[in-house]
Deep mutational scan, measured.
Amino acid sequence: KELVLALYDYQEKSPREVTMKKGDILTLLNSTNKDWWKVEVNGRQGFVPAAYVKKL
């Protein structure tokens, strides 16, 4: 599985998104969309802005 690092805090704005804190390590589930990547964090799956994370 591929991991990404949260570069910034992000507060979810819809049920399809997830909240993350700067420094969190997230599991990358899908990065086919250039703007929104699907990740898993704390057992929850959802989208975060691709610009807010970096592949490890």
Results as ranks from 00 to 15, higher is better:
L7S: 03
T32W: 10
V53N: 00
E12W: 06
Q45P: 07
N42L: 11
D9P: 06
L26S: 02
P49V: 02
K38H: 13
R16T: 13
Q11M: 14
V4M: 05
P15R: 08
D35E: 14
T19M: 05
N33C: 10
Y10G: 00
G43R: 05
L5H: 05
L5E: 13
V41D: 07
P49Q: 02
V4S: 03
V53M: 06
L5T: 08
E2C: 13
V41W: 09
S14A: 09
D9T: 07
E2D: 13
L3V: 10
Y8C: 12
L56G: 04
K54L: 14
Y8I: 11
N42D: 13
W37S: 03
F47D: 04
L26H: 03
P49L: 04
K34V: 11
G23N: 07
V39D: 00
W37R: 02
L56D: 03
Y52W: 07
M20K: 00
N42I: 06
Y8E: 10
K55A: 09
L28H: 01
R44C: 06
P15E: 14
E2S: 11
W36M: 07
E17R: 05
L29V: 12
A6D: 00
L29Y: 05
E40W: 07
D9L: 02
T32Y: 10
P49R: 04
D9S: 10
W37P: 01
V4R: 03
L7V: 07
D35T: 15
V53A: 03
R16N: 15
A51L: 12
V41Y: 12
W36N: 02
V41R: 15
V39I: 08
V48L: 02
P49F: 02
K1T: 12
R16M: 14
N30L: 10
R44T: 08
S14C: 09
A50Q: 06
M20P: 00
L7G: 02
G46K: 02
N42A: 13
R16P: 06
L3M: 12
Y10E: 00
K22D: 03
L26P: 02
E40F: 07
K22L: 06
V18A: 05
K38C: 12
V39H: 00
L26C: 11
E40T: 06
V4N: 01
P15D: 13
T27V: 14
K34I: 10
V53G: 01
M20R: 00
Q11S: 12
V18S: 02
G46C: 04
G23C: 08
R16G: 13
R16S: 12
F47H: 06
V48R: 00
F47A: 03
L7M: 11
T27K: 10
D35I: 15
